[in-house]
Amino acid sequence: MQSSIAGKLWMAATGLFLCLFLLVHLFGNLQLFLPRPQGQLQFNFYSHLLSSNPLIKIAGLATYAGILGHAVLSLLLTRRNRAARSVPYAYSRPQDASPWYARNMGILGTVLLIFLVIHMKTFWYEYHWGAVGVDSGGHRDLYAVVLAAFDREWYVALYVVAMAAMGYHLLHGVESAFRTFGFQPRRFARLAHRLGVAFAVGVSALFAIIPVYVYLVQRW
């Protein structure tokens, strides 16, 4: 990466692409709020629809590439940024100048990466290679896998914590990405800021509520 601004632009581009993925993923997951018998059939049908669609397969590969690119590039850029200050301050108060989550995007991102591995093992791996039954519609019963996963309190808690990390990551990331692309609406600056916050909080909260809802309501 030759220019530091080019590095920023790629971080922003991959980050916003992953935000699009989050939206699509969230809309699929919202089917878990449907009442049980239809919800189960609907969710399993949707899972089958996605996993058998070649366009979704391509989008999936692009998503993996996006995650990999975002993570590897962040490591390269962080290494370069660290090298710019070889003697640290003896006494520094960074909390007076910027929010903690904006300074710790790497830690929040690492939490998300670890979460992603666990998440993929529980659902993606089980759906493709695990012992999964078939529902009355003839589709593999991913819904049952979801119910079984969120039967455990610690697993529900893990999801809520991971989504809190994602919320803070997006709280800085979304607005930062738009700024990086030079988007700075003069008349709607406050509105644009609020939309960024609403996206971060809304998407993360909805993702976090699903395991809680499944644990409290759908299991019974």
Binding site: Q2, S4, K8, R80, N81, A83, A97, P99, A102, S176
Partner: peptide, 14 residues
Amino acid sequence: MDAEGFGGCTNTGA
């Protein structure tokens, strides 16, 4: 700016 060895911006706002 890059050649001088400054780091890159992450929009922390500090």
